[in-house]
Nucleic acid binder design. Structure first.
Length: 136
DNA sequence: TTTCTAACA
DNA sequence: TGTTAGTA
């Protein structure tokens, strides 16, 4: 169960996540306000995202593109619980780790794990639920 | 330079 | 959501 920790390690600042997800900083922060994601924070109050955070953002992005609003996404996605706690626990360690890795190394790590570890999580219920929570 | 919060032409 | 202001 060590892979669980790796995926919840808070590693990247918002700038990297923006490029990785093609979401604006405004959107990322907005989704956080609605508790769709709960990234860790550095001692300087800067957000640090984990692989799970990025995956959740991609999932959110996908649903938004399908016309699902925040309320709908909240009901479709599992609420943030233990994941955020674990991310917080390792935030300090991660902050140090992050400085040991170059930006390009981080990009590699993410792309790899994101591409290989992606067994279609989309289920049928999402499409059906979107019918009720879609906002024209 | 990058990120943060708050606010609004 | 975009964007800007004033910081840290």
């Amino acid at each position: 169960m060590g892979d669980e920790i790796r995926r919840n390690m808070a590693l990247f600042p918002i700038g990297i996540v923006m490029k990785l997800t093609d979401l604006s900083a405004r959107q990322i922060r907005y989704y956080e306000q609605h508790e769709l994601i709960v990234p860790a924070r550095t001692s300087g109050n800067q957000r640090l995202f984990s692989f799970n955070d990025v995956e959740r953002l991609l999932e959110i992005k996908s649903l938004i593109e399908k016309g699902v609003n925040i309320a709908g996404i909240k009901q479709v996605m599992n609420p943030v619980t233990r994941e955020s706690e674990e991310a917080t626990v390792v935030s300090e360690l991660s902050e140090v780790k992050r400085r040991e890795l170059s930006e390009t190394q981080l990009h590699r790590m993410l792309k790899q794990q994101l591409l290989e570890k992606r067994p279609g999580k989309a289920s049928m219920i999402q499409g059906q639920l979107s019918h009720f929570y879609t906002k024209k």
